[in-house]
């Protein structure tokens, strides 16, 4: 049976912000960081919570974890009111802050896990089983005895995710879990999260700027902008609404006139380098083959559209 594990109902968060106006004077004004947001997440769902910077994403997540108290509205996570019973909720959720580490810099990774074992009072058997699984799936075995400061960014992120799961949380919040990672680490993190969700039914809410994260993980996205939900539904719908494009950056042997190919828009030319936009839904492979046949190709890379561009286009499309 699937139940609503996250309930957000008409939630608002209003901040008083003081800004410098002139040399000494300061002005107070109110900012509605979250302005009447409602959505529910059922257990076992993987939801992408996305939006431009400053849209209210992290404020919402802070209310869901009990860090912040809502100004108005109702929040329930696993049936618990996060702001009233923050520490009780803490045992049932896992949180990964992309930029703020919970690991101990100078100590081996294993020591950080041992601390969580005891801080959360995880029963020994449960802890051992969870650690074993994380170590296997995230390939942490060679890293356990290494001081965290010696780990690469990707290794550290895998370590962080494992740290958030050792106490068997029902809900996992991930804030930019793949930011700054190389392609291999990104793929590994995504694969792990997929498995976790399928095997354990862990509910996942993730914020990200990486559209591939969403494509590969989330059955559903909630888009927030200016503190309001502007889209809630399947990813495909978002693509349609935004008509997103991918970008092929090619380095040719020398300067050429803008490349002429069907379905491709040349966005920019800079010496031998050209930027070619094509619909995100189309495969890049035939395009590359065609290019290589007709031009002396030196190097190329494909850039995925970022969320901001998709959302910007979504607005542009709507107002047109």
């Amino acid at each position: 049976m699937r139940v609503d594990v996250i309930e957000v109902d008409a939630v608002e968060k209003v901040f008083d912000v003081r800004r410098r106006a002139g040399r000494l004077r300061r002005e107070r004004h109110r900012v509605r960081a979250v302005d009447g947001v409602s959505f529910t997440v059922r257990s076992g769902e993987v939801v992408g919570y996305i939006g431009p910077n400053g849209a209210g994403k992290s404020t919402t997540v802070k209310m869901l974890t009990g860090i912040l108290t809502p100004s108005a509205g109702r929040v329930r996570v696993a049936g618990i009111d996060p702001s009233r019973e923050r520490t009780r909720l803490a045992r049932r959720i896992g949180v990964v802050f992309g930029q703020r580490s919970t690991l101990w810099w100078d100590l081996p990774l294993r020591d950080s896990y041992r601390l969580i074992h005891r801080l959360y009072r995880v029963p020994d058997a449960v802890f051992r089983a969870n650690l074993e699984r994380c170590v296997e799936l995230l390939d942490l075995a060679p890293l356990l005895e290494v001081p965290v400061r010696q780990l690469s960014l990707g290794q550290r992120m895998r370590g962080e995710i494992a740290a958030a799961l050792l106490h068997d949380p029902e809900v996992l919040y991930l804030d930019e879990p793949t930011i700054g990672l190389d392609v291999v680490s990104k793929a590994r993190v995504r694969g792990f999260l997929r498995d976790l969700n399928e095997e354990r039914g862990t509910t996942v809410l993730l914020t990200t700027h990486d559209l591939t994260d969403i494509e590969q993980l989330c059955g559903r996205v909630v888009v927030i902008d200016h503190g309001r939900v502007v889209y809630d539904g399947a990813l495909g719908g978002l693509h349609e609404a935004g008509e997103s494009e991918r970008m092929l950056v090619v380095d040719l042997e020398r300067e050429f006139a803008p490349v002429g190919l069907a379905g491709v828009r040349v966005v920019r030319v800079e010496g031998p380098r050209q930027w070619l936009a094509f619909p995100a839904a189309r495969s890049a492979a035939p395009l590359v083959a065609e290019l290589a046949r007709r031009y002396p190709l030196v190097d190329l890379s494909v850039r995925e559209p970022d969320i901001e561009a998709v959302i910007a286009r979504m607005y542009a499309g709507r107002s047109a």
Binding site: R91, R100, Y120
Partner: peptide, 13 residues
């Protein structure tokens, strides 16, 4: 620097 938030999501005072 926002690191206080990390402490707020742990089940200890």
């Amino acid at each position: 620097d926002g690191t206080l938030d990390v402490l707020l999501v742990r089940p200890v005072p």
